[in-house]
């Protein structure tokens, strides 16, 4: 702050409070809706104060789901989402960290070619090549499986570049010292590189967990068996089936449950999250 201007200070707080309210507004409305009985919506306008059906609505959605809408219980879908998010985040980090190690610390033929092959994936988001990718996965018999949900999304140019950047800043003296002491490449990787990149790995994990949890189009296409549904991809199915028989309270309970885990991750690990977000864009 350059100078003290009382009216400007007040304006600053006003702008921020308004911003916080606008950002929170849709979630507040959804949260309130999820605490009412279904009859609360027949009066013509959404209630704005909490009702008393919160426990009933949430336990109904977690335990039995909406069978008329073809929606299984949320508990199973949340577990699937969790598996998907964790496998994608771990997998991306694991294969990217080894790729970056290979590219930075070795000189081999076609090194540039390998680098470019990974780089190109940055320009091929799954939405763009959705039809042929679906066909490949179908031909490999990976529809309706955890492998199909995760493996095709696991390649990551962004993560590889991030680790490459990190490794390039690690002083050569460390490598020399390790070699003089007789450490082979894998020992150097395990005992020096990995510990040094710990915070980067953690920050990246936060971003990738959110990425994996929020996948929509991919799980929607490759899961037709309800036992592999993920919660985010099922929201539309729930909302549309319910449009004929409005059960807004239940849909909104599902919405809140579907967004809670990644939101908690961002709020609880804010510092890592911001670090990860800024780093992955470099």
């Amino acid at each position: 702050m350059v100078e003290d201007r009382p009216w400007l200070n007040r304006l600053t707080h006003l702008v921020l409070i308004l911003g916080v309210l606008i950002v929170a507004f849709p979630v507040y409305v959804a949260l309130i809706a999820s605490t009412h009985p279904a009859t609360a919506f027949s009066t013509g306008v959404i209630p704005l104060w909490p009702g008393d059906q919160m426990w009933e609505n949430y336990s109904l959605m977690m335990g039995s789901g909406l069978s008329t809408a073809g929606a299984p219980p949320l508990a199973g879908m949340i577990l699937n989402s969790l598996i998907m998010a964790l496998v994608i985040a771990t997998g991306k980090i694991a294969i990217s960290v080894t790729s970056a190690f290979a590219i930075v610390y070795f000189r081999f033929r076609f090194r540039q070619l390998a680098f470019w092959a990974i780089f190109v994936t940055l320009m091929l988001p799954v939405e763009v090549r959705i039809v042929p990718t679906f066909k490949v996965v179908a031909d490999l018999g990976m529809l309706n499986s955890y492998a199909g949900l995760t493996v095709p999304l696991i390649a990551s140019a962004t993560a590889t570049f991030l680790f490459r950047q990190v490794f390039l800043t690690i002083p050569d003296e460390l490598t020399e010292a390790a070699r003089i002491d007789g450490a082979g490449p894998m020992k150097f990787f395990r005992d020096i590189l990995l510990p040094l990149s710990q915070t980067n790995i953690a920050a990246l994990f936060v971003i990738l967990f959110i990425y994996g949890w929020n996948q929509y189009l991919w799980p929607l296409l490759i899961t037709t068996d309800a036992s592999y549904y993920t919660v985010v991809a099922s929201i539309k199915r729930l909302a549309q089936a319910v449009d004929s028989v409005p059960q807004w309270n239940l849909v909104m309970a599902a919405v809140i449950l579907a967004m809670l885990p990644p939101v908690l991750v961002v709020v609880g690990m804010q510092r890592l999250f911001v670090k990860g977000l800024v780093e992955t864009e470099k």
């Binding site: 916080v20 929509y216 985010v232 579907a258 967004m259 990644p262 991750v265 961002v266 709020v267 804010q270």
Partner: peptide, 13 residues
């Protein structure tokens, strides 16, 4: 903190 959490909300949601 109060402004950044929508990043975690999926577009469909």
């Amino acid at each position: 903190t109060l402004l950044v959490w929508p990043y975690a909300v999926a577009p469909v949601i």
